[in-house]
Design a protein around this nucleic acid. Structure first.
Lengths: 273, 273
DNA sequence: CCAAAAGTGTTTCTAATACACCCATGT
DNA sequence: ACATGGGTGTATTAGAAACACTTTTGG
């Protein structure tokens, strides 16, 4: 490792770039697909759309679209991939202001799209309970994870499974697994909740995503013992439970991104609390 | 969710596909970059190459190359992205038979390559100590993480930092962080070791990657208490330490992919044991 | 013999779990 | 009043960490 050079862009470099022909490459299409996850009434849902174009016209699929690589007639180039994900999603449904977006992975098998080679960068979006998409209800909808063919963890006793277009069932399954494991060691559960929430609401997020009940009392203590997870607002919820009950304290997300120690979903009956 | 349809490919679909023109899209180039990590003499290294072409001629960079989207003059199409990663890497250095390859993430900022819009799918490869690349030593080399400008954790007291081409410093930093966290909750540490190894060698992997000493006695017990992490071969190492010492038992990787419980790298002096 | 490294025993301490119980509110 | 849900106290238990010590080898 002797004599490291750290060359700066020189005249030769400039001349090379001026003469470069971008059309020489570019044999694959690049898309972004978004797995938007939320929890409605304690049940995890994913946003799906019916395909309005061939191929696989009429199938349920993830919202997605082509990355704008350069400025063009359709609009300016996407500065980065997350921008492309948000643009593509906002073209189909209104976006909440508070959200969490993270890259899930990239899918590029040769035969995943019958038209051509398509490389899809998938993103996971975690959002609080959103209104139904404003597009025609038959075109976009929040679908429970449990209704999907693969990768869920809920009960779907006898219900018909929904097949997704392309390899989107696999992508959703990967997204669900990502969400499940990230709740263990990050404070991401708050991304499913409004800006202020109760500890019970937070617990219900864990129970919905992990598909298993947690011990309320111990969960409560453990959340408060994890530094930076939540921050007390000093106020109380408007009212107690529907059938009576004490009013719960309201919290907002704390500054911490990672949880120390993590909330492990072990094999026991009610861990993490 | 009433009346789900699961349409099959019909005549209209077939006619559509026959008439489809793939050239209508394809505005971005897709590459794969590989962050190959190994440990040599207790020090973590990454495989880097000097760029032999413009742009950034002569800079250190990750091995990588364009994805073959279709069959062409250079060879057949890559069936999937991991195949592309292995092909690209094998074109530059011989590959070990035992290795772990996983997708790290995809980088697609508008200005990350001055030539054109390039979307790079990055892979992490964990490998046992490999021989030096057979290409010219000045063209490819194993470089210690600590020599790199960003994202390391080792000491580099006064040593000159190596700048990487494009956004590769960021990619390597992400790969290092991925490796560090995956050692916590998966059995991946064995990917850095030969097929049979001692518990001490395993501990040295953790110490190298995490950059911190661990308590040998407790580590030993904890590894053996984690089901499926390692499996006893019943044999002993050829000899003890250089200055004397008992011969260590040899183990091979167990079947488990995930560790229950995980080995947490907390903030204390010597966790995980 | 002595130093070095592998591995075990044991104590201490902290954190996870379970369960009992009190508090506050809606009906 | 009483049922419901929020929240705290506390005993039990499991696991993490620290340290002492035995075993086996090289020099």
């Amino acid at each position: 490792m002797s004599g490291e050079r750290t060359p700066r862009r020189d005249d030769g470099e400039r001349r090379f770039l001026d003469a470069y022909d971008p059309g020489a490459y570019a044999p694959a299409a690049v898309t972004v697909d978004v797995v938007a996850l939320t929890i409605r009434a304690g049940v995890p849902h994913v946003l799906l759309m019916r395909r309005s174009a061939r191929p696989q016209l009429g199938w349920w699929a993830l919202p997605g679209g082509f990355v704008r690589a350069q400025d063009g007639p359709d609009g300016p180039a996407d500065p980065d991939l997350p921008d492309a994900a948000l643009r593509v999603l906002s073209e189909k449904t209104p976006l909440p202001t508070e959200l969490h977006l993270e890259q899930l992975g990239t899918y590029g098998a040769l035969d995943r799209d019958p038209r051509m080679r398509v490389i899809s960068v998938a993103y996971v979006l975690l959002a609080p309970d959103l209104p139904d998409p404003e597009t025609d209800a038959d075109q976009a909808a929040w679908i429970p994870w449990s209704a999907l063919g693969h990768g869920d963890g809920g009960d779907r006793g006898g219900r018909a499974e929904i097949d997704l277009a392309f390899d989107h069932a696999r992508i959703v399954a990967d997204a669900v697994e990502r969400a499940r494991s990230k709740l263990e060691y990050t404070a991401l559960a708050t991304a499913f909740l409004p800006p202020e929430f109760t500890i019970t609401a937070l617990r219900e997020v864990y129970e919905a995503v992990w598909g298993r009940p947690l011990h309320g009392a111990n969960f409560h203590r453990k959340i408060l013992a994890t530094p930076g997870f939540v921050e007390d607002t000093g106020r109380l919820a408007e009212r107690g439970g529907p059938g009576g009950g004490r009013r719960a304290r309201l919290y907002r997300p704390g500054g911490a991104a990672f949880l120390h120690p993590p909330l492990l979903r072990g094999a026991q009956s009610s861990p993490a609390g």
